[in-house]
């Protein structure tokens, strides 16, 4: 990566300033150029970067250059704080309904990792003593239902399906009835991948939402997503209303700037991150860790 070690770079930029009283606008500007490049190289949305740089510049200009720290480290500190802020300060969890079953709807683009993540979530909740049910509402992708069944079998979690000739809305409704009858306190609904601009399929999700009233609508986003992440997240959020985000494939070497984009554009928390293909590879999300990763530190 070109901007690996941004920290070092900024140290260089600020070396000359050691012993100076306050950071001037000019000092900060040249440092911000490096930060801007680093964020764009990490795939953070162009607009998000612009707003962010403005904010950090305002905070950093006039900042005291403390003796103990180099000015570079201070700016890095401010950048990191603001990034962490932007990504949400605390790690969020699933909100369980006081009236079970808690209904979780997984949505997102094709291939983002919904079906796998559904299994992973189920496994985690099962560990917490819950009795999850997986519901197969992807009637389009070849062998999607089979995939969920295989996942369920591996985890010993029941899977509800009605084949691919029934509408996803009806499958979702029947799945919840089934869950209620068999004492499942969490129902996780897997849906087909779809483009945010596909009106018919976005309407289908709206119908599922209005019929089953999910407690958590989770947008599953591939961490490698580039500038399009804002369009996707913004559209899913404004059309459907999402409650949280799950970022997948962070076991790769992507810097994961999409995290910042989706969070900034929706204001919704990132709740989990996917760290591998195995059904145990789901972790809680820590904003500060991802902030450092995005900066390449």
């Amino acid at each position: 990566m070109i901007f690996e070690g941004l920290s070092e770079k900024l140290q260089g930029t600020f070396k000359k300033l050691k012993g100076k009283g306050k950071l001037s606008e000019k000092d900060v500007k040249s440092a911000m150029r490096e930060v801007k490049l680093a964020l764009l190289e990490a795939d953070v949305s162009y607009k998000v970067v612009k707003d962010f740089i403005k904010k950090v510049t305002e905070r950093a200009v006039g900042h005291e250059v403390l003796e103990s720290l180099t000015p570079g480290q201070q700016v890095i500190k401010i950048v990191n704080e603001e990034l962490t802020n932007l990504m949400g300060n605390t790690q969020s969890k699933i909100m369980f309904s006081s009236k079970p079953p808690t209904i979780i709807l997984l949505v997102g683009l094709q291939g983002a990792g919904k079906t796998t993540t559904g299994g992973k979530l189920g496994a985690q909740l099962k560990k917490l003593g819950k009795r999850p049910l997986l519901v197969a509402c992807d009637v389009y992708r070849p062998a999607a239902i089979k995939q969920l069944h295989v996942v369920g079998e591996k985890l010993d979690i029941p899977v509800f399906s009605m084949g691919d000739k029934v509408s996803p809305v009806n499958i979702a409704k029947a799945g919840i009835e089934h869950g209620k009858k068999y004492g499942n306190d969490v129902v996780i609904i897997d849906t087909a991948g779809r483009l945010h601009i596909d009106e018919r399929l976005m309407d289908e999700l709206k119908d599922i939402k209005s019929e089953v009233r999910p407690h958590e609508i989770m947008l599953v986003v591939d961490a490698m997503t580039g500038q399009d992440a804002v369009n996707v997240a913004d559209t899913f959020n404004s059309e459907l209303g999402i409650d949280g985000i799950i970022l997948t494939k962070l076991d790769g070497d992507t810097r994961g700037g999409a995290a910042l984009s989706v969070r900034a554009v929706t204001g919704k928390p990132i709740k989990y991150i996917g760290m591998g293909e195995k059904l145990t590879d789901l972790e809680p999300f820590y904003p500060d860790r991802l902030a450092s990763r995005i900066l390449g530190m």
Binding site: E41, A42, D43, L109, G111, D222, M224, T225, G226, Q227, D228, V232, G252, D253, T254, R255, G257, A258
Partner: peptide, 10 residues
């Protein structure tokens, strides 16, 4: 995948 950002180069 066209949706992928700079990681595609890697």
């Amino acid at each position: 995948d066209a949706t992928t950002g700079q990681n595609a180069i890697q």
